[in-house]
Simulated assay, not measured.
Amino acid sequence: MAGNYDLDELYANTYTDEDRLAFETQPESTKKFLIAWALALFLGPIGAQRYYLGYLPTAVLKTSLFCAGVVLLILDVPNAGLALIGVVGAWTIIDLFLLLSGTMRDRADRRLQGFTRFAGICAAATVLVLVGWLIVALVIGTSSGVTS
Rank of each mutant, 00 (worst) to 15 (best):
I35G: 02
I35M: 11
A36K: 06
A36P: 03
W37M: 05
A38N: 05
A38I: 04
A38C: 04
L39Y: 08
L39S: 06
L39Q: 07
A40H: 04
L41N: 09
F42W: 13
F42S: 07
L43G: 11
L43Q: 10
L43E: 10
G44Y: 08
G44L: 06
P45M: 10
P45T: 09
I46M: 15
I46Q: 14
I46T: 14
A48H: 10
A48C: 13
Q49P: 00
Q49L: 01
R50M: 12
Y51Q: 03
G54S: 11
G54L: 08
G54K: 08
Y55P: 00
P57T: 14
T58D: 08
T58F: 06
A59C: 04
V60Q: 10
L61G: 02
L61T: 10
L61N: 01
K62H: 09
T63H: 06
S64W: 07
L65V: 04
L65T: 02
F66Q: 06
F66E: 08
C67K: 00
A68I: 15
V71T: 08
V71G: 00
L72A: 13
L73K: 01
I74R: 00
I74F: 02
L75K: 05
D76T: 07
V77P: 00
V77T: 11
P78H: 12
P78A: 14
N79C: 04
N79F: 14
N79T: 11
A80F: 09
G81S: 08
A83T: 15
I85T: 03
I85A: 01
G86N: 11
V87R: 05
V88M: 04
V88P: 01
V88H: 01
G89M: 10
G89V: 02
G89C: 07
A90G: 12
W91F: 13
W91G: 13
W91D: 14
T92E: 14
I93H: 06
I93P: 01
D95R: 06
D95Y: 08
L96M: 15
L96P: 07
L99Q: 11
L99D: 09
L99G: 09
L100M: 13
L100C: 14
L100I: 12
S101C: 02
S101H: 02
S101I: 02
S101K: 06
R105L: 05
R105N: 08
D106H: 07
D106F: 09
R107W: 14
R107Y: 13
A108V: 01
D109F: 09
D109I: 03
R110H: 14
L112Y: 05
G114S: 12
G114M: 10
F115Q: 04
F115L: 05
F115W: 15
T116F: 11
R117P: 04
F118E: 01
F118V: 00
A119G: 02
A119L: 03
A119I: 01
I121E: 06
I121Q: 11
I121K: 08
I121R: 13
C122M: 11
A123K: 15
A123H: 13
A124R: 12
A124V: 15
T126H: 09
T126N: 14
T126A: 15
V127S: 09
V127D: 05
L128P: 01
L128D: 06
L130T: 03
L130V: 09
L134V: 03
L134H: 03
L134K: 03
I135C: 04
